[in-house]
Design a binder for these strands. Structure first.
Lengths: 125, 125
DNA sequence: TGCATTGGTTTCCTTTTGGAAACTACTTTC
DNA sequence: GAAAGTAGTTTCCAAAAGGAAACCAATGCA
């Protein structure tokens, strides 16, 4: 038993681990979940609205993150020929498939907050 | 209508957005999902096994990420008085509540891979 | 005429992140 | 007595991420 058969279960999980890496790469950065969470609730928003709504973000970051997500087909960018030109962003149907992830993350975060008040939950279960 | 009532739905989502930020802060960094994904499948692993299993990670990062997660009660560290001292890490019951998130992320990543082969799915739905 | 708003881009800078390699210390094995 | 395995820590460095502020072009409003 010199050489470790480092993994027995490995073959099964490789796919899973790769999948996790893929997803997290697409959703990387400080703001994507935040932007998506916001956009998923309103369905369509203009750039300046997002800038105001996603608190703390600057225009550079917002612009960059939206571009990333557009490239990955998660959101669409539509220019509207209004008086001062406006641009609306919306989550694609494909982007909406991220809904369950965001939901789980939000759910966990909420119960995390609760557990801060009654830390016993975190200790024992 | 001079002043934008920037948000109407805001109050409801604030909690949600905060929850998303909380969760993502705890799971920040390049490796936590990866480590957790690995650890959730095996239940207990030694440091060197993780180092081998989580491909690409170095000992510095592994050590730091494990410490972060220990602080947040997601994993436990147990020293075992074996011949050369060994240390086992395992996901706590509390850490296991992250399971659904990891599952959704893995699920999405897997179907993302598929959609790369038939990109039509990503375009139309 | 001048200021505000729209949707960005660009520049400059700081902070954070992360990796490679060396080193520690202890034990077992060759 | 040298090598190798245990579990890390430390140092040094490069790259990436992110923020603040300035800038731009077009248009509307007063």
């Amino acid at each position: 038993m010199k050489k470790k058969l480092s993994v027995n279960h490995s073959e099964i999980c490789k796919t899973r681990i790769t999948a996790i890496k893929d997803t997290m790469e697409i959703l990387s950065g400080k703001w994507k979940f935040h932007i998506l969470g916001t956009l998923l609730e309103t369905d369509r928003m203009r750039f300046m609205d997002l800038l105001r709504e996603v608190e703390g973000i600057g225009s550079k970051m917002l612009s960059k993150e939206l571009q990333d997500m557009e490239i990955n087909h998660l959101v669409t960018r539509t220019v509207q020929q209004t008086k001062p030109i406006t641009v609306v962003y919306e989550v694609t149907e494909y982007g909406k498939t991220l809904g369950p992830i965001i939901d789980e993350i939000a759910k966990w975060g909420i119960s995390y907050r609760s557990s801060l008040h009654s830390p016993r939950d975190r200790e024992t279960a």
